[in-house]
């Protein structure tokens, strides 16, 4: 039988109200408060209830999450429910924080419910399934029912439908989908075009997401003392591609020693080439410095404009590479660069 664990705050865990919002996390080998309702509706059994005060979670999130993950380490469970949190902001954020951590640590589905006004929705809808819920506990039964029905579907292995049909908040996870009515793209396009011409409402199949921003790094004060590294997504690698970096949809990166060279030698000289499949390789194969400008950096090093060029350059392939993979590789490379006291990077892209 499937096993579930439920997360509740101090109030729904029947500890008390605001006065005990500092309640430290605990796990009970029983169904407490709302956990009973989950147990009734679930095609399975709620084995444990976790209770944590909203303020405790709010002011000691890291500690609270660690302790709860510790509780769960030796438990077997197939699904995790948190909330419903209604319009309670601290509770919603707590459900999101613990839900995200549980999903990442144990790779089980996590389901929550919050009112659309709850700040937890915006913060965590990408990380866990959050269903739109009522404003207050008057909607407890409705909200839990929605969550558990979806949970039962996941547990049964049934194919999940798009977010708009299942009802949870969109998570920014897009997959291709064969339309039941088989409306071809040409019909959809003409329909959208005529609606746009006539000023009628239409729904884009690819809503433009918000653009990510990145914190701006402080400028380098003294370049002549800085060690600078070259990083590329242009797929320049030694001729035998020792790290087997993929030509498209890369998940691997490599670092290549260049301390002993004034410029990168080319494919004909059996030195460096590109394995990037997304662009014409001829120019990069003939002179890899066009993509990774080792020669120009060396010149600036000799002239004293920069302290030194780092002894390795880093490379991967940026075609069809997913953002998550790219971000992971970027973090891994950054980690190395920081450990080696590199102050700046010039990143070349193709």
């Amino acid at each position: 039988m499937a096993k579930a664990i439920v997360y509740l705050n101090q109030f729904f865990g029947q500890i008390g109200g605001e006065e005990v919002a500092d309640h430290e996390p605990e796990i009970r080998n029983e169904k407490v408060g709302a956990a009973m309702l989950y147990d009734q509706l679930l095609d399975g059994e709620v084995t444990h209830t976790i209770i944590c005060g909203d303020n405790f979670m709010g002011s000691n999130e890291e500690q609270a999450v660690d302790r709860i993950l510790g509780f769960l380490k030796d438990k077997e469970f197939d699904i995790f429910f948190a909330g419903p949190a209604f319009q309670a902001g601290r509770y919603g954020i707590a459900c999101g924080a613990i839900g995200k951590a549980v999903k990442e640590e144990f790779d089980v589905s996590v389901i929550s419910s919050m009112n659309e006004e709850n700040p937890g929705v915006k913060m965590y809808k990408k990380d866990i399934y959050i269903f739109p819920g009522g404003k207050s506990a008057a909607k407890m039964r409705d909200d839990v029912t929605k969550m558990v029905e979806f949970g039962n579907k996941i547990l049964s292995g049934e194919k999940l439908l798009p977010a708009e049909q299942e009802g949870f908040f969109k998570r920014g996870i897009r997959h291709q989908y064969f339309l039941e009515d088989e409306t071809p793209a040409y019909e959809r396009a003409i329909d959208m075009l005529l609606k746009k011409i006539n000023g009628e409402d239409f729904v884009s199949e690819l809503p433009i997401p918000e653009i990510d921003t990145v914190e701006i790094a402080d400028p380098i004060k003294d370049l002549s003392k800085a060690t600078i590294a070259l990083v590329t997504s242009g797929g320049i690698v030694p001729i035998d591609n020792p790290d087997k970096i993929q030509s498209a949809s890369a998940t691997r990166w490599g670092k290549y020693y260049i301390a002993d060279v004034d410029k990168l030698k080319n494919r004909r000289e059996e030195s460096f080439k590109t394995i990037h499949a997304g662009y014409d390789p001829k120019a990069a194969d003939a002179d890899p410095n066009r993509v990774v400008p080792v020669d120009a950096m060396r010149k600036y090093e000799q002239e004293g404009k920069i302290g030194s060029l780092y002894e390795y350059f880093y490379s991967t392939v940026g075609t069809g590479t997913s953002q998550d993979e790219a971000a992971r590789m970027g973090k891994e490379i950054t980690q190395e660069l920081i450990e080696n006291n590199i102050q700046a990077v010039i990143e070349t892209s193709t």
Binding site: A286, N289, K305
Partner: peptide, 29 residues
């Protein structure tokens, strides 16, 4: 395909362009 050196131009022109633009990047830092 050739961010820092157009193969249809002379080696000298390519070098000039690459040296200049890498310099701009360094100043940007």
């Amino acid at each position: 395909p050739y961010p820092l050196g157009d193969p249809s131009t002379s080696e000298e022109e390519q070098w000039k362009l690459r040296y200049h633009r890498v310099g701009v990047a360094l100043n940007a830092l």
